[in-house]
Every structure is written in C-alpha cells, then in structure tokens.
C-alpha cells in the first residue's frame, strides 16, 4: 500500500533536536536527544534548569558581535557557551565576565539558533551565587547585590542613599561619586530616611522561603 500520510499535505519532519522542555521542568524523558542531560556537567545543569540545550550553540559569534560589553569581557557570550560545552567549570565560573553581562538581551534577541545566552548566563550566575553565597562573584558586584537585597529585606523598598552608603562601605570606595551627593540632594533625588512598607513580615517570609527553596533544590 502506498503511504497515506502526507498525500498533498505538509509533513512535519521528525524532531531531532529534542522536544522543548518547559522552564523549571527537571526531567527530560520526553526528549529524543541522547545528549547528556542528567549528569553533573554544566551543560546538564543548564538544561535541567532552563530546558535550553547548550550543545545547540554553533559558535557563529552573532551574540558577541552585538554584545555591548564584549569589549570588556574575557569570555564573550559565545565563549560562555563554548566553555559550557567543554565543561570548563573553573575557568568559566571564576572569572568576572559572567558578572559583566547587563542582561540587555541583545544576544538572545538575535541568536539564530535560539540558545538564549542571556538566560544561560543568568543561570550560571544564580548557580555561583547559591553555591557559596556569592563568594564566586567579583567583590564590587557582590557588594552591590548584597546591599541591594538587604535593603529590600529590611525596608521592602530601595532607599538609594542607604544603598549607596552600604555599597560604598562594602567596597571601601567611599570617595568615588561622593561629589555627586550634594547635587542629588539639591535636586531632591536622594531621600535621607528610608520608607518602610507595612508588610515587612511578608517580605521576610518571601526571602526565607525563596532561600529555603533553593537549598531544597540542591539536595538530591
């Protein structure tokens, strides 16, 4: 008998790429891919968390060609994907490059092969942050994020004067930009006292639960 399927209609080609996995889904049993996605490699981690397959990157460099920070990075976006493919964990995670990403998403918008480098970099940063409380992140970046999150936890909102002061304390760069403070004050752009929201207990609950969820996820 002649095959019935496809007589005068469009045949979907057989999926070879692995079925898409929704974000957060950790099992990939539906996938036809034989690529490693359960092991402990960086690629497997990225795939488990995001459903993105780092092996898709074919190193065209379009991400790095459009990256505003490429000129300052040791590892450009396409290098990041390459190092994941090669599982060079130490080399990739210890450097500053990951933290120079501005998440402007230009790479993701233009990636021809839908690798979503911005999301991949986010995932790696989260991983570094979680593994040792941000110790892997460069000092000034760590200081910024710590001050920022502490502020939210304490007040529910960002109180920029306090944020800047906290950041400066942590980095020790007390005097850079210090000249801007009077101008900011004069223009009414800096409040001197923080606003605290009423539902602070809610905010603390959110922080605690989210931190706990991360730890749970780590345990097998």
């Amino acid at each position: 008998m002649p095959p019935l399927a496809g007589q005068g209609r469009c045949l979907e080609s057989v999926p070879w790429r692995g079925a898409p996995v929704s974000p957060g889904e950790t099992t990939l049993e539906v996938s036809v891919s034989h690529n490693d996605h359960t092991g402990s490699t960086l690629a497997a981690h990225v795939r488990q968390v995001t459903g993105l397959n780092p092996a898709r990157c074919y190193q065209c460099g379009k991400c790095s060609a459009g990256c505003p920070m490429a000129a300052e990075m040791d590892f450009r976006p396409h290098d990041v994907l390459r190092l994941i493919q090669q599982d060079k964990r130490e080399q990739l995670l210890s450097g500053e490059s990951l933290w120079l990403c501005l998440t402007c998403e230009t790479c993701t918008a233009r990636c021809p092969n839908e690798c979503d480098p911005a999301r991949v970099i986010d995932t790696l940063r989260e991983m570094v942050w979680r593994d040792n409380g941000g110790a892997g992140a460069p000092r000034h970046i760590r200081a910024f994020h710590k001050s920022f999150l502490k502020q939210i936890r304490r007040s529910g909102r960002i109180f920029e004067f306090g944020l800047v002061a906290g950041y400066k304390m942590r980095t020790g760069s007390l005097f850079s930009d210090v000249g801007a403070v009077p101008g900011m004050l004069k223009r009414g752009k800096l409040a001197l006292t923080p606003t605290r929201i009423k539902g602070l207990d809610e905010i603390r609950r959110i922080f605690d639960k989210c931190a706990a969820a991360e730890t749970d996820a780590e345990e097998p």
Binding site: G6, G8, R9, C10
Partner: peptide
Amino acid sequence: IESLAQKLSVSYDK
C-alpha cells in the same frame, strides 16, 4: 508551491 503540491497530491516539508 503548497497549493500546487496539493493539486498534485504530493507532500512537502514545513
């Protein structure tokens, strides 16, 4: 090409 292929009952890819 799709409409011609349909007229001729031949299949085509996406």
